[in-house]
């Protein structure tokens, strides 16, 4: 094997490993992006629940709060 072939072989291996590394990084990035997207739903759920409960809570209206909670629980 000539010097050139050897160099090509090393370069090929380097490229293969670099590609492999990039693939892994892209997969990891995709998973992280997906995690971020999933926060949208969580945020919406929490905001939705809090928005419904906050007024009776601030009024210390216990009966009203239970009624809201029971209705909310049933409507899902």
């Amino acid at each position: 094997m000539g010097v050139k072939d050897k160099a090509l072989g090393v370069a090929g291996r380097f490229r293969a490993s670099a590609t492999h590394d990039l693939r892994k990084r892209v997969a990891a990035l995709e998973a992280e992006v997906q995690e971020c997207r999933q926060l949208n739903l969580r945020l919406a759920e929490l905001t939705d629940l809090v928005t419904d409960l906050l007024v009776p809570l601030a009024r210390s209206d216990e009966a009203g709060m239970r009624e809201v909670l029971a209705k909310y629980q049933e409507s899902i």
Binding site: R42, E45, L46, L49, R66, L69, Y72, Q73, E74, I76
Partner: peptide
């Protein structure tokens, strides 16, 4: 018996709140 979907945070929290109250 209550319907509760633990895949939905709002369902889990509302049910937890209702029972915990």
């Amino acid at each position: 018996f209550l319907t509760c979907n633990f895949l939905e945070a709002r369902s889990a929290l509302a049910t937890g709140g209702l029972v915990g109250a």
